[in-house]
Design a protein around this nucleic acid. Structure first.
Lengths: 126, 126
DNA sequence: CAAGTAGTACGAGAGAATTCGTACCAGTGG
DNA sequence: CCACTGGTACGAATTCTCTCGTACTACTTG
């Protein structure tokens, strides 16, 4: 699937008007994102599956870690989502007690055109 | 260095005419290449640099491991080139005593469109 | 045959990732 | 206040990866 198709079909709506959007947690700037780090983050099936699910099913603004239905201990999920954030793939914001995730679509499209399409087309091994 | 050694050093052997091309070493078939494995292989700067150099500077022929000018022990290079081959990124053929490498351009274009462009655009960290 | 070349395989040490238990903390809703 | 939810931080065990030395093999050249 092309980046343009992703734009048309799976665009993440803006936050609701008047809602307070917390600042993102620390993350690399757009120009600091390294392809090696992105590749390393995506080399784990759980993590590339998370990014893909966010791309394809993010009908709402963003999602908590538990929304993904991953059957892992919470401390493991913390590790994987931090890995994705530090690589520059997802942005995390703290909404009260929960932490919500979204793919950095604009940054990734600008920096690595075609990458999101590869992720969206990924399927887990049988 | 002997004259013969000088000859070998600077001669790029022509592509073997016709049927003299050895069979590739064991590698995953086109449809067996996994994106996770490709990402893992490319997450090492040395390896993504090798693939990039092959893409940009050796469209016609394939090249030995030492052609890359990497200042690592031979056993380290064996490890990295095997990783690339087992991930499905490069094809290796045995020409006499030396082993030559090519990017699997057709397979990767078909399976992961856009990936090769990402690799070609990569630059090492400063 | 002997020397040189281009690799391999094995194995060990160091370091990084992964997994996960445990303890803990911040909001939210009785 | 108390329990619950949705996380974090730390640390340990395990596993994986990277690096590299050593010894070895295969082929080519003189």
């Amino acid at each position: 699937m092309s980046d343009a198709a992703l734009d048309r079909e799976f665009r993440i709506p803006p936050p609701p008007p008047g809602a307070e959007v917390p600042e993102p947690l620390p993350e690399p700037g757009r120009d600091e994102i390294r392809l090696e780090a992105v590749m390393a983050a995506l080399s784990d099936p759980l993590r590339i599956g998370v990014v893909r699910k966010l791309l394809l099913e993010s009908v709402d603004f963003d999602h908590t870690c538990t929304w993904f239905g991953l059957e892992r201990p919470k401390s493991s999920l913390t590790h994987h989502f931090r890995t994705l954030r530090e690589a520059g793939l997802v942005r995390q914001r703290q909404y009260g007690p929960s932490r919500r995730n979204q793919v950095r679509i604009a940054d990734l499209k600008a920096r690595f055109p075609g990458l999101l399409a590869l992720i969206a087309d990924w399927t887990p091994a049988e």
